Amino acid sequence: MKKIKYCCKNLKNGSKKVYKSLKNEFPEIKQKKKDCLGSCKLCSKQCFVLIGKSEVIVAPSADVLYKKLKHRIG
């Protein structure tokens, strides 16, 4: 899997839990926090991450996002 990128503003909205959980469970996966990923409309309403340069995974809550990412990782 490519690098998972998080928007710092979205971390405050709940995705910080996902970041920490994935870091503990899958330390080999690269994760990066960025100031802004340029998806402000998504960021303000839902939890999301960017995989690689273009794949966006969106979820209504941190728990659902974590499950989607875990499924994506395999």
Rank of each mutant, 00 (worst) to 15 (best):
M1A: 14
M1C: 08
I4G: 00
I4V: 06
I4H: 00
I4W: 01
K5L: 11
K5I: 03
K5C: 05
C7R: 02
C7V: 04
C8E: 15
K9G: 12
N10T: 05
L11Q: 13
K12I: 11
K12N: 13
N13L: 15
S15I: 06
K16A: 10
K17D: 14
V18S: 04
Y19M: 07
K20M: 13
K20E: 15
S21A: 14
S21T: 13
S21H: 07
S21C: 05
K23Q: 13
N24S: 15
E25T: 12
E25K: 15
F26I: 07
F26R: 04
P27A: 10
E28T: 09
I29Q: 05
K30V: 08
K30R: 09
K30I: 08
K30T: 11
Q31C: 07
K32C: 07
K32D: 07
K32R: 07
D35F: 12
D35K: 15
C36D: 08
L37S: 05
G38S: 09
G38M: 01
S39L: 10
C40T: 03
L42C: 00
L42M: 03
L42I: 14
F48R: 01
F48T: 00
V49Q: 01
V49A: 03
V49R: 01
L50M: 11
G52F: 09
G52Y: 10
G52V: 08
G52E: 06
K53I: 02
K53T: 07
S54W: 04
E55R: 13
V56H: 06
V56T: 10
V56L: 05
A59W: 01
A59P: 02
P60D: 14
P60E: 14
D63G: 14
D63A: 15
V64I: 12
V64A: 08
V64Y: 03
V64P: 00
L65S: 06
L65R: 02
L65K: 02
K68L: 13
L69N: 05
K70F: 06
K70D: 06
K70W: 03
R72N: 06
G74P: 00
G74S: 11
G74T: 06
G74A: 10
